[in-house]
Design a protein around this nucleic acid. Structure first.
Lengths: 216, 216
DNA sequence: GTCTAATCTCTAACAATGTTAGCTTTTTGA
DNA sequence: TCAAAAAGCTAACATTGTTAGAGATTAGAC
């Protein structure tokens, strides 16, 4: 390990580094707050800085560009989502799948601005940046949970990674359409539709192809 | 009917109206082409007009704003998608579901710029405009097809509209993640995962709750 | 305590964006 | 031939992300 080479940094140097980090976090929070209140279109560099009573160029001492800040918020979102999924994964195997689907939904509608930053909706760019580690974390939590549920039923997944992709795609599509107001009947109905369909979608991922109904 | 009140418009008036429509269509095509070649971020009013050798303000004689043009392209997209779904719905009942899922996928990847315009990705605004008639058209085609498939199996859908929403959400989520490069293994694997899972997802929509495997 | 170098933060400016005003030119219909 | 209408342009505006450069503040060595 080459970590911590050279002499110990002086006390004030450490303090200033800490203040830098706090400033960075405050900038992220400000952007997130504006987005939550007025949508991503209202998130401009001058408004972010203004919210902290700084002038616009301050942002470039903490992020290389506006997009850089947005990408960072995306990883914040994935971290929060992963945490919620971890929590839901502690449910009993019988309820775990539904709990995780509900956790996904709850996260998305509790923090729509983060969900949008993560999925490139509404003016937030996406695709150029690599998928962050936090996203892979969330994915892994999901995969382990699905495998556990399968083995609790005395079965196993034909293609664990594929099962996660498939179910993730369904959850994302459901939330995405619901958030855009594209599901007639409102979000409550959309949520019910999603939760009801996730179980058969999972069963079909079990070895042996198109699985039958879930065991009672 | 109050259509066609007043005297017949003069010949040259009709010609100019026709030219206006053509100009409008050319503006839409230019925007679409730029988006297809360089992404939506490159689509600026000056570039759209420039591509037709006009100056920028010409756009405002055909659209009330840039967003207005984008919304129009969105309905173009839904019209194309509806047409493709209609075609796929002519397949034999046994293949129809997969054919429609494949048609959805093929459309999305044949015209990513339209798909993005329809679903508000990558800088294209969405949500403010009402869902256009063409979108409801596509939805209806889907619903009728699903109902036909069900009755061809001697069953029926518990909630036809809900079944469409559910399957649509899954298709959209799959395409959306694949297009963002978020499915490990590339688009071909993503496509396979989607097509494989659509059948059990459909079966679960049949009356009687979580349906078993498809009849052979 | 004083001085130099680093760090912080600002104002001013830049090019590019969507959009509007106002003018000139062309076309229309009598 | 002429007035009205339509088409199309240039010039401008405010707002965006971003950079340059100057002025203030602080750090740490003597």
């Amino acid at each position: 390990m080459t970590t911590k080479a050279g002499p110990e940094p002086s006390a004030s140097k450490k303090r200033r580094e800490r203040e830098r980090q706090e400033m960075r976090a405050r900038l992220l929070d400000a952007a997130r707050l504006i987005a939550a209140e007025e949508g991503w279109n209202a998130v401009t560099i001058r408004r972010i800085a203004g919210k902290l009573e700084y002038s616009a160029p301050i942002l470039y001492q903490h992020f290389s560009s506006k997009e850089d800040l947005l990408v960072e918020l995306m990883t914040v979102g994935f971290a929060e989502l992963a945490e919620r999924l971890r929590l839901a994964a502690e449910d009993a195997p019988g309820r775990r799948l539904v709990a995780m689907a509900e956790a996904y939904w709850t996260f998305a509608f509790a923090s729509p601005e983060l969900y949008q930053a993560m999925n490139g909706m509404d003016g937030v760019p996406f695709g150029t940046a690599e998928t962050p580690r936090e996203a892979r974390d969330a994915f892994r939590v999901f995969r382990v949970a699905l495998q556990d549920i399968a083995s609790a039923r005395g079965a196993e997944l034909a293609d664990p990674a594929g099962a996660v992709d498939t179910i993730w795609a369904f959850l994302h599509g459901s939330v995405s359409l619901a958030m855009a107001g594209r599901i007639a009947g409102g979000t409550e109905r959309a949520r019910t539709l999603m939760v009801d369909a996730v179980e058969p979608l999972f069963s079909a991922q079990l070895r042996g192809g198109e699985g039958g109904p879930a065991p009672r």
